[in-house]
């Protein structure tokens, strides 16, 4: 086998391999979003985060603006502290509210941000003050059942 032929084939081989890696990274994966963009960190306290996981998306109006980077439990206040890293492209007012939401009925959970009206923007290291917890399905169902039981009780009482 000729040296030049071998070199050519190995060149083709390596090119194909790198092309496959690039294809995987760009077309299959999501390298395009937040590759090396500058980010800033904020955190928020929730009473209950439900099934939220590290690396879950942070969305505002449905657009992914960042990712959850860390979840801790505060043993003094008994709340969950969620750290997020947001893209520098997206700025939010200081009184932005955060909420743990679910995409679809049983889909993945994410943090939703709702911008407020403050002039000052959130800066690196800030804490989001206004939060509302994840909707826990069990609580929802039990509340619904409790309510309807109460209602039936009342209607029964009235008829009696």
């Amino acid at each position: 086998m000729n040296r030049a032929t071998i070199d050519l084939w190995v060149g083709i081989f390596v090119t194909l391999g790198i092309a496959a890696l690039v294809f995987l990274a760009l077309k299959v994966g999501n390298l395009a979003s937040f590759g090396n963009e500058p980010m800033y960190a904020v955190s928020a306290e929730f009473d209950n985060i439900g099934g939220l996981k590290v690396r879950a998306p942070v969305r505002s109006a449905g657009v992914v603006v960042g990712r959850v980077t860390d979840i801790q439990f505060d043993t003094r206040k008994y709340v969950a502290v969620v750290s997020m890293s947001l893209s520098q492209k997206y700025q939010f007012s200081k009184d932005t509210s955060a909420q743990v939401l679910t995409s679809g009925l049983l889909g993945e959970q994410y943090v939703g941000l709702q911008a407020g009206g403050d002039d000052a923007n959130l800066a690196n290291g800030d804490r989001i003050k206004i939060t509302s917890s994840a909707v826990v399905l069990e609580n929802l169902i039990s509340r619904f059942m409790f309510n309807s039981a109460e209602k039936t009780g009342q209607t029964k009482g009235e008829t009696n």
Binding site: F13, V14, L16, G17, I18, A19, A20, L21, F23, L24, K27, V28
Partner: peptide, 15 residues
């Protein structure tokens, strides 16, 4: 050196 390239090609072809 060949193995990761081959695996990447395999995955790409699979997709």
């Amino acid at each position: 050196m060949s193995m990761p390239l081959l695996a990447a090609m395999f995955s790409a072809m699979g997709v």
